[in-house]
Amino acid sequence: MTTLLRALHAESLKLKRTLAFRMVFIAPLLVALLQFFMGLNQRRAAQPGFNLWETIFNASLVIWAIFMLPLLITLETALLAGIEHGEKQWKHLLALPIPRSAVYASKFMIALALTLLSTLTLFGLSLLNGYALIKLRPELASSAPPEFLKWLFVVLKLWTASWLIIAIHTWIGIRWSSLTLALGAGVAGTFFALFAASARIGKFYPWLLPMNSLNLIEGEPRDTLALLIGGLGGVVAFGLGCLEFTRRDSDEPETSMSRRFLLAVGAAGIALAILGVAMQSAKSDPAPPKPSSVTPADSRPGS
């Protein structure tokens, strides 16, 4: 335990002067700025039942959940691992009298800490946004005061639901030294979330879990499942990644994905897609699925 604390202490020093640390604040700032300008032009302000805080938080958190946080996680984990890939620091770290698991765990935890800090920064900036808008547009002042604790809770749920992607990306970043590969995986994961959102599989899709935690679909609360898969699943995924790392017979990352690994991922993806389509068509109606919902991957095994 003290080893882990020491490792985290060391990890925090490595962040000095890094893009990884600056991005923690840049990412929420971008979202908050966008929110600020949208707030200035808000036309529904005069309508009855308008809630300024609801509007601000919902809009920023949706952008954060669906796209900014997953991309931030991708970038952070890639940069954090990159610090060790640059001069083959692994051979130094792993020859120190500390367990390999502590090295791996400290990487995961520092990624958790940075994304939490970033998400809380967004929370703070959103509050600031609200007060600034009230100052600039007094007609907004009629809104109820912000429900501070409620939103803090929402924000923490969102972050917890992202543990699974943090664990996945921590593993990818450490296992392969290629930055392109790590970023590619994150962009692909985030991009496919757009498709998965409308499918049943969206309930379970890792990159959608932060979004699901917001419970935006009327009459279909998904937050419990999101916390379960995202949070608990994240812990399990971290455990598996850590196990793989401690057992690896090497002090060097792979440079590219082996063909066998790619085939396994491809096969799993196709299987999931087929399962998803099958579940959807079985549930909704007996008619065959619309051609538009069939992705190229699904059509391959049939042809």
Binding site: L13, K14, E87, K88, Q89, W90, K91, H92, P97, I98
Partner: peptide, 25 residues
Amino acid sequence: ALVEMPSLYPHLTGRENLEVTRRLI
């Protein structure tokens, strides 16, 4: 141990590099 080229963090100072390992061990 020093295996092949030294593994240093170029964005840190010499002292900070030592401090990272000092904290670890």
